[in-house]
Simulated assay, not measured.
Amino acid sequence: MSDSSSHPRRPADLLLIEDNPGDARLVEEALRDCPNANRLHIVSDGDEALDFLYRRGDHGTAPRPDLVLLDWNIPRTSGENVLTEVKADPDLKHIPVTVLTGSKDDGDVRRSYEKHANACLHKAVEPGEFMDTIEVYTDFWLSVAKLPTGEEGS
């Protein structure tokens, strides 16, 4: 097995789409010690998420995120519709999108995969467990998985 530490990566940009300030804070705290995830961008609804991803309005200079953490139940444009739009766009579909849900409904999980989510994480009730989940998630995506580098067409 190769040692991923021998291949340093640039710091990653993560986009968190989360309307619950407490959950956003837990993700922020979980990422604080992650050496490859020191640029966390947080938006609180689906419309703002799409503005960030398409670099519109106040997000005209936003970076292209390396990973997206998407709350399934967000205001305005729903998480499901954000995921559908991202995965239908040739310039965005390569970005791994992980759906975060507190729902116990298996239908939400099934729909997220049908819409081409790369993963679905359940929001643990216990803050420490939720933070552990985020740490394992970011370790996998930023240390183990191979992500595309740079932007197409830039």
Rank of each mutant, 00 (worst) to 15 (best):
M1V: 05
S2Y: 13
S4E: 14
P8Q: 04
P8V: 09
R10V: 15
R10Y: 06
A12H: 04
A12E: 06
L14P: 01
L14C: 08
L14V: 15
L16I: 09
E18C: 10
G22L: 12
G22S: 13
G22N: 14
R25E: 15
L26I: 06
V27E: 03
R32N: 03
R32S: 09
R32C: 03
D33T: 13
A37P: 01
A37H: 02
N38H: 08
L40P: 02
I42A: 01
I42H: 06
D45F: 14
G46R: 01
A49E: 07
L53A: 03
Y54M: 10
G57R: 06
D58E: 14
G60Q: 12
T61A: 11
A62V: 01
V68S: 00
L70F: 08
I74M: 08
P75R: 04
P75N: 07
T77V: 15
S78Y: 08
S78W: 11
G79W: 03
G79V: 02
E80D: 05
E85T: 14
E85K: 08
K87S: 05
A88R: 12
D91N: 01
I95W: 03
L100R: 04
S103V: 08
S103Y: 10
D105L: 04
D106G: 08
D106E: 15
D108T: 09
V109C: 06
V109M: 07
V109Q: 05
E114S: 11
A117H: 05
N118V: 00
N118F: 11
L121Q: 03
L121V: 13
V125E: 12
E126L: 10
D132S: 12
I134E: 09
E135P: 00
V136M: 15
T138H: 03
D139S: 11
F140K: 01
W141I: 05
V144D: 05
A145D: 05
K146L: 12
T149P: 00
E151W: 04
E151C: 05
S154F: 09
S154L: 12
S154A: 14
